[in-house]
């Protein structure tokens, strides 16, 4: 792909070297929803980082707070939801307390977004070309003509055939897969450093899903963008992500290299989750079952939120909340991995 020829000056080289400085750092982020029945904590003191050029997968079941984390980072929490604590830093700069206007300019320019439903992320009244040129011109000083050229390049880059014809069409004239390609192009408009993709393939058919994942992966590599990939589909994460964070009840249960988390889960929840996924070629025997269901936000259990469902829970899990601690090559928020606990158990047994 011949990309960024017209835009290279504003965004730097084609592919950035992969460094160690984190692009995104999230520290003790807390998101709360005041309701008349009390304050609900949707995201509870979570910390993670995304390195340059890295794809961080965030998985979890509905209600785990994974989408909420994404929307909090880009400052699009729906009121009355609000960030109640913690910090979000983009390339070292704090962005969680920016004024609305400034954050609006950062969105798109420095953080790109891809949402689940391509139909709602595009305004049906405007052509695809208008969406693209508008975004490009908001974030750069290109002329109308240059912006259009850039839009055409982007469309062909995301694999839309005959971009010259398609650019003046409306979103409804595109199929679901093609629309999601447009959204990806839109996210890449200003060569952002970070792309937050919230369930980007969930609304798509399997064959289209594979195309979009491949596209997202390739483009981020070429543009040197980091990705926060939020999804409930472990398969998508396994194929795409470098590292993965598993969320449960507003907390990170486990975070580590994707291979490790999938094959050598350290947190009992991750273990259960992996066993619950049916695989092709696997046995036909019963799937691993985690008893019970995800707690509602109104009644998060004490201590480790997973303890009522955990087969390995012991007394401490009910009382104290575990923070992330080293566990194998990953980190897990589980008392089983507390060195003191290990020693005590060995002593007892």
């Amino acid at each position: 792909m011949n990309e960024t020829t017209t835009f290279a000056d504003s965004a730097g080289a084609t592919a950035r070297p992969r460094g160690n400085r984190p692009v995104l750092e999230v520290e003790k982020l807390r998101v709360e929803f005041p309701t008349r029945k009390g304050t609900l904590r949707a995201v509870d003191d979570i910390s993670f980082h995304i390195d340059e050029g890295e794809v961080l997968g965030v998985v979890g079941e509905s209600g785990a707070g994974k989408s909420m984390t994404g929307t909090a980072i880009i400052g699009l929490l729906e009121p009355p939801g609000r960030i109640a604590g913690g910090e979000v830093r983009l390339e070292g700069e704090r962005i969680d307390n920016l004024p609305y206007e400034k954050m609006r300019r950062y969105r798109g320019a420095r953080i790109g977004m891809v949402f689940q439903d391509p139909l709602t992320s595009l305004n049906p009244l405007y052509t695809v070309g208008f969406h693209l040129t508008e975004t490009i011109r908001t974030h750069s000083d290109l002329s109308e003509k240059q912006a259009r050229q850039r839009a055409l390049d982007l469309l062909s880059e995301v694999g839309i055939p005959a971009p010259e014809r398609r650019i003046d069409q409306y979103p409804h004239q595109f199929s679901g897969g093609m629309r999601q390609r447009v959204v990806v192009a839109l996210a890449l408009c200003a060569n952002p450093r970070l792309i937050i993709a919230d369930e980007p393939t969930t609304a798509l058919d399997v064959s289209i899903q594979a195309q979009i994942i491949r596209l997202l992966q390739r483009l981020c590599r070429e543009h040197g963008a980091s990705v926060m990939l939020i999804t409930h589909d472990m398969g998508v994460i396994a194929e795409t992500a470098d590292r993965v964070a598993v969320m449960y009840a507003g907390r990170i249960a486990e975070v580590g290299p994707v291979q490790e988390v999938v094959k050598n889960a350290q947190h009992p929840y991750t273990e259960g989750l992996m066993g619950a996924i049916p695989t092709i070629g696997g046995t036909h025997e019963d799937l691993v079952q985690i008893k019970g269901s995800m707690p509602r936000l109104t009644q998060i259990p004490s201590g480790c939120a997973f303890h009522p469902r955990c087969p390995k829970a012991f007394d401490r899990c009910r009382r104290e909340r575990p923070e992330l601690m080293p566990a194998g090559r990953s980190e897990a928020a589980c008392w089983l991995h507390d060195p003191a606990e290990k020693g005590r158990r060995r002593g007892n047994g």
Partner: peptide, 22 residues
């Protein structure tokens, strides 16, 4: 094609024939 398109938990890195079209 369908079987090829499913994301793979095993991460076997098998070569896939990319499927075009919709």
């Amino acid at each position: 094609m369908l079987l090829d398109a499913i994301p793979d938990l095993e991460m076997s890195g098998r070569a896939r024939t990319p499927v075009g079209g919709e």
